[in-house]
Design a protein around this nucleic acid. Structure first.
Length: 375
DNA sequence: CGGCCTTTGAAGCTG
DNA sequence: CAGCTTCAAAGGCCG
């Protein structure tokens, strides 16, 4: 509760939730959800094409009427949602956030003081499968909430974030900082950014930190392993983990290895110029959801193409219950808040025009069967 | 090798 | 202020 509105920065979240969906459809959706994996997938695979045509009501034929009403409901629900959020957000999180698969992953939420204080990271180490990428399980290692919560409570959540959020956090080590490094002055403690590590929310460049990262996790007391925060490059997290939101401006995401990222700092002149890293937009609720679920979908279905997967995820997203979605909205809101604190002056406008996308006049639709067949 | 595709949501831009 | 555009992730595909 504190969070939301109270803090005042809440505005961020305001929009998030607008989408609340159908109230009634929830049940249906839920059921569906459960069945999703099995039937759905199959369904998806085969039906993707068809559905694509019907984009308006994604795979929910029966309920599509609701889809239409969704907008209406959304408004109604919105308020509801706000309340929900307040309650939900916190409450859910407290409860362990997503049952099972849910959002165990969200780093920010999970990492909490426990780490700091206990250094219980070790817990991670033992449990965290360092990388088990594929296969359905939680690909995102860190996502494994258990690891985090494992010994302790993962609960503390960022709820506090809001409270102080706007107010610079004095000693809030526990709070935000834990998740996001302070931009500049505050780098004090390395909070285990386990968050980052764990967090798939923002990916770590492939070559990047993965390795080290995991190593870290597995080694437990590894804080020491991280270089001093101050020595890190701007794009890195205090812990040494590159901040997900920052990528080397060249944009070579594939390549940007960890080392590459750091150059600014250690080798200032080498790069000749600042090459200011690009700070990316914080992820929205759906993006967070995609991040978390993508691997799962990939595992379930043999699909690999992101476009196809995204379609599936889009449908699943709609199939989520309000509560489930709200979790993501909440997370997204927090992300934005953190992002804001981290990069106060940043604006999405900064990245405008960097990508030259041609106006998509391509109406996706029917004619082209997306050929999304899963197998 | 870089843009497209595809999704939703947030935010910027435009009229 | 409403509506449109761009960007965020991601990875195969294509020119």
């Amino acid at each position: 509760m504190p969070q939301m509105n109270s803090a005042g920065e809440d505005d961020l979240g305001a929009s998030d939730e607008m989408i609340s969906f159908k109230d009634e459809g929830d049940q249906e959706e839920k059921i569906r959800e459960s069945a999703f994996t099995e039937r759905d997938l199959a369904d998806l695979k085969s039906s993707l094409v068809n559905e694509s045509e019907v984009s308006s009501h994604p795979r929910v034929p029966e309920s599509h009427p609701e889809a239409m009403r969704r907008t209406q409901d959304a408004q109604l629900v919105y308020q509801d949602k706000l309340t929900d959020h307040m309650e939900d957000g916190v409450k859910h999180q407290d409860e362990g956030m997503y049952k099972g698969s849910g959002y165990p992953s969200y780093p920010f939420l999970m990492l909490s003081d426990p780490y700091l204080s206990n250094g219980s990271v070790s817990a991670l180490s033992s449990k965290v499968p360092v990388v088990q990428p594929s296969h359905g399980v939680h690909p995102l290692i860190p996502y494994n909430n258990e690891s985090f919560s494992h010994g302790s409570h993962s609960t503390h959540l960022p709820a506090d974030l809001n409270q102080k959020q706007g107010v610079h956090r004095p000693a809030q080590t526990a709070d935000i900082p834990t998740f996001y490094p302070l931009p500049s002055g505050g780098v004090g403690q390395i909070s285990p950014s386990v968050g980052w590590q764990s967090q798939p929310v923002y990916p770590i460049p492939s070559c990047g930190f993965r390795q080290p990262y995991s190593a870290t996790l597995s080694s437990g007391p590894s804080y020491s392993r991280f270089p001093h925060p101050l020595m890190l490059s701007p794009s890195m997290h205090t812990t040494g983990i590159p901040h997900p939101a920052i990528i080397p401006h060249s944009g070579n995401k594939d390549i940007d290895c960890y080392e590459r990222n750091m150059k600014p700092h250690s080798e200032p002149k080498r790069e000749r110029e600042p090459k200011k890293p690009t700070i990316k937009k914080p992820l929205n609720a759906f993006m967070l959801y995609m991040k978390e679920m993508r691997a799962k979908v990939i595992a379930e279905c043999t699909l690999k193409e992101s476009a196809a997967i995204n379609q599936i995820l889009g449908r699943r997203w709609h199939a989520l219950s309000r509560e489930e979605q709200s979790k993501y909205y909440e997370l997204a809101r927090k992300e934005r808040q953190l992002h804001m604190q981290l990069y106060p002056g940043w604006s999405a406008r900064d990245n405008y025009g960097k990508r030259k996308r041609r106006t998509r006049e391509k109406h996706q639709d029917s004619s082209s069967d997306n050929s999304l067949h899963c197998s």
